[in-house]
């Protein structure tokens, strides 16, 4: 935890990113420095409303679906591990021993 309350390990956990002790020490310097810089936006004198731009990032409607199976081999071919037509993953829920 840095002086201004940035908990790098908690952030890394949220971001699903393993960090080493050495990296945490470095990031504890760098990230508060970046946040200190971007905090200048608090001084901007702007209206409280957002004027909506014409374009927004949205998912397109799922129309004209492709024929099931035509891309299966290509896409599964990119997966690190597979079982049949499924992507194989490690155990998601672990039972705690004790």
């Amino acid at each position: 935890m840095t002086d201004n309350g940035v908990d790098i390990r908690a952030l890394a956990k949220l971001a699903r990113l393993d960090v080493t002790n050495e990296e945490v020490a470095k990031l504890e310097q760098e990230i508060p420095s970046i946040l200190g810089f971007v905090d200048t936006i608090q001084k901007a004198d702007v209206p409280n409303e957002i004027s909506q731009p014409e374009l927004r990032n949205v998912m397109r409607a799922d129309t004209d679906a492709i024929e099931s199976g035509i891309h299966t081999e290509t896409l599964l071919g990119a997966a690190p591990t597979r079982e049949g037509d499924y992507v194989a993953v490690k155990q998601v829920i672990t039972r705690k021993s004790n």
Binding site: R16, L17, D18, L75, P80, T81, V87, V89, K90, T94
Partner: peptide, 17 residues
């Protein structure tokens, strides 16, 4: 999980991290 570099782990959280 689906593509790109994958490092194995004990469970899925470890694979992600």
């Amino acid at each position: 999980i689906r593509y790109g570099l994958s490092v194995t782990g004990e469970n899925i959280q470890e694979v992600y991290g």
